[in-house]
Amino acid sequence: MLFSRRPTEDDTVVAMLASAIRRDISFGTLRPDEKLKIEALRQRYGGSNHSMRETLRMLVSEGMVEATNQRGFRVTSATEDDLADILLMRLEVEKLALTRAMVQGGVDWEASVVASHHQMMRAEDQVREDPNDVSALEWDEACRTHMLSLIAACNSPRLIDMAGRFYDQSRRFRLARLREGRIAFEARRTRHETLKTAIMDRDTQRALALLEEDIRADLRG
């Protein structure tokens, strides 16, 4: 019989370091293809050599960082081809997960979708009123939470985990569009209201079409 180990203090440090570095990659503070040196990262974010190396290995598994042939690390590239591939994977994974959730989700799932949609709209109002890094991050986190609520009833932890990872890899692109003023918020609000209605009506075909439209609009416009 297999047993999972208990989380350690080092696990907590690694999670905190990963969150900070993930955020800075998403906002472009750490640039695509930038080399990540352990000592420089420790001076910037804290932690030990061991915890920082474990952090980078975690981010490699998420696709945010790449290990180089010289046993070093660098920020994953962010080319047009990368965007196209991430878009492909988000569409495939999220549509599959939503299809399953539409079949298996109950009233509690519907309630969580409505609640996360409301929170996302509140965050959207805030970032439109005062667009800064804090409001942008809160908006992006609310969007991620809503995406996960849409697929929560798919009953596949691995599918949900995969959707979260590909969402994280897309963050740099959508946050860049936000900074450049290329998010059409009114159209986005209408799309999400219609998506919510389609989910409540259990209109799977309509919901999937709207989900695809939304992912494409967020990443490509």
Results as ranks from 00 to 15, higher is better:
Val14Ala: 02
Ala217Met: 11
His117Pro: 03
Arg216Tyr: 11
Gly72Phe: 05
Met16Phe: 02
Asp168Pro: 04
Arg44Trp: 07
Thr29Pro: 01
Ser26Met: 00
Asp214Ile: 02
Asp11Met: 06
His192Ser: 00
Lys35Trp: 07
Ala207Thr: 07
Ser149Trp: 01
Val93Cys: 05
Gly47Gln: 09
Leu91Glu: 08
Leu91Asn: 06
Asp24Arg: 09
Gly106Leu: 08
Met64His: 07
Leu2Pro: 14
Ser170Arg: 11
Asn155Met: 12
Gly105Cys: 02
Thr99Asp: 12
Leu148Val: 06
Ala209Ile: 12
Gly181Lys: 02
Ala101Met: 01
Glu193Gly: 00
Asn69His: 13
Met64Glu: 11
Ala176Arg: 13
Val134Lys: 08
Met64Trp: 00
Arg174His: 13
Leu159Glu: 09
Arg172Glu: 05
Ala209Thr: 14
Gly221Thr: 11
Val103Ile: 06
Ala198Arg: 09
Leu88Trp: 13
Glu9Thr: 08
Thr29Glu: 11
Gln169Ile: 08
Arg71Asp: 14
Val113Gly: 11
Leu56Thr: 13
Arg220Phe: 10
Gly221Ala: 14
Leu59Pro: 08
Asp218Tyr: 03
Arg158Gly: 14
Met162Val: 12
Leu98Thr: 10
Val75Lys: 02
Leu137Asp: 15
His117Ile: 00
Ala20Asn: 02
Met1Asp: 12
Asp11Ser: 04
Ile151Ser: 08
Leu210Trp: 10
Arg191Thr: 02
Ile25Val: 15
Glu129Phe: 02
Lys196Ile: 04
Ala111Asn: 13
Pro157Thr: 07
Phe166Asp: 09
Phe185Ile: 00
Ser51Asn: 12
Asp108Met: 08
Glu212Lys: 15
Glu129Leu: 06
Thr55Cys: 15
Phe185Ala: 00
Glu92Gln: 12
Leu17Thr: 10
Ile25Trp: 10
Gln126Val: 01
Gln119Cys: 10
Ser77Glu: 14
Gln70Gly: 05
Ile86Lys: 01
Arg5Trp: 04
Arg74Asp: 08
Leu91Asp: 07
Ala176Phe: 04
Ser149Val: 04
Glu141His: 01
Met121Gly: 00
Gly164Cys: 09
Arg90His: 05
Asn132Trp: 06
Met58Leu: 15
Leu211Gly: 07
Asp82Tyr: 06
Ala40Asn: 15
